Computed example of a mutant assay.
Amino acid sequence: MKDWMGKIRTLSLFSLMVLLLSACGRDNLTALVPKGYGAEESLRIIIITITVMIVVFIVVMAIFVFVLLKYRQKKGQENMVPKQTEGNKTLEIVWTVIPILLLIVIAIPTVATTYDLADESAKEDSLNINVTGEQFWWHFEYPGEEIQTSQDLYIPVGQKVYLNMMSTDVIHSFWVPSISGKMDVNPDNENTMYIEAYEEGVYWGQCAEFCGDSHSLMDFRIVVVSQEEYDQWVTDMQNVDPDAVPESTTAQEGKALFEQSCISCHAVGNTPSVGPNLSNFGDRTMIAGVLEHSEEELVEWILNPASKKPGNGMLDAPYLQDKSVSQEDAEKIADYLLQLKASEITPDSAK
Rank of each mutant, 00 (worst) to 15 (best):
E253S: 07
W204C: 04
P187C: 08
N88G: 00
Q339P: 03
L68F: 12
T85K: 03
E146Y: 15
D335Y: 03
I46V: 13
S180Y: 13
V59C: 02
F281I: 04
V33E: 14
A118S: 12
I46Q: 05
P310E: 09
N189P: 01
P305L: 08
Y198K: 10
G205Q: 01
G38M: 01
P82I: 03
E292V: 14
G144T: 06
Q84W: 11
V268R: 02
S214W: 07
A267W: 05
S126Q: 01
E247T: 15
V185F: 01
K2V: 12
N280I: 06
R9H: 06
N280M: 08
V240C: 02
E124Y: 00
E297F: 11
F14E: 05
D213Q: 15
S178F: 02
L20Y: 12
I263W: 08
S343L: 06
V105W: 02
E146F: 15
G282K: 02
A317C: 07
Q327E: 14
V202H: 02
Q227A: 12
T168H: 14
F210G: 04
E141W: 06
L278C: 05
E228N: 15
L117Q: 11
R284L: 14
Y154P: 00
P177V: 02
G181L: 05
P347A: 13
W95R: 10
N186R: 09
D241V: 08
Q327T: 12
A334R: 00
T235N: 14
H172T: 09
V224M: 00
K35S: 09
F174W: 13
D169L: 15
E297T: 14
S326E: 12
M17H: 06
A330G: 05
Q327I: 10
I179Q: 03
E253R: 07
D119W: 03
N164V: 09
Y115R: 13
L101N: 08
I58H: 06
G254M: 06
N239W: 01
N189T: 06
I287Y: 03
N28F: 13
G181K: 06
D243L: 11
N277Y: 02
V274A: 14
V185T: 12
S343D: 05
A288H: 10
C262L: 09
A267Q: 07
M193E: 10
V185N: 01
H266N: 05
V325E: 10
P156N: 05
W175G: 04
V18L: 10
T285G: 06
I8K: 08
Y203A: 01
L20C: 07
M17W: 11
F220L: 07
L320I: 02
T30C: 00
L19M: 08
V202G: 00
T85F: 08
P318Q: 02
I155G: 01
S279R: 00
F57G: 11
G25A: 03
T192K: 00
S264P: 06
N128R: 10
D329T: 06
V52T: 03
L103T: 10
S273H: 05
A112V: 12
V245E: 05
S150L: 02
G181D: 03
A306H: 14
P305V: 09
I50K: 06
N312K: 04
L21Q: 13
F136D: 07
Y319V: 03
V65R: 03
V223Q: 00
M286Q: 11
S180A: 12
Y115E: 09
E229A: 10
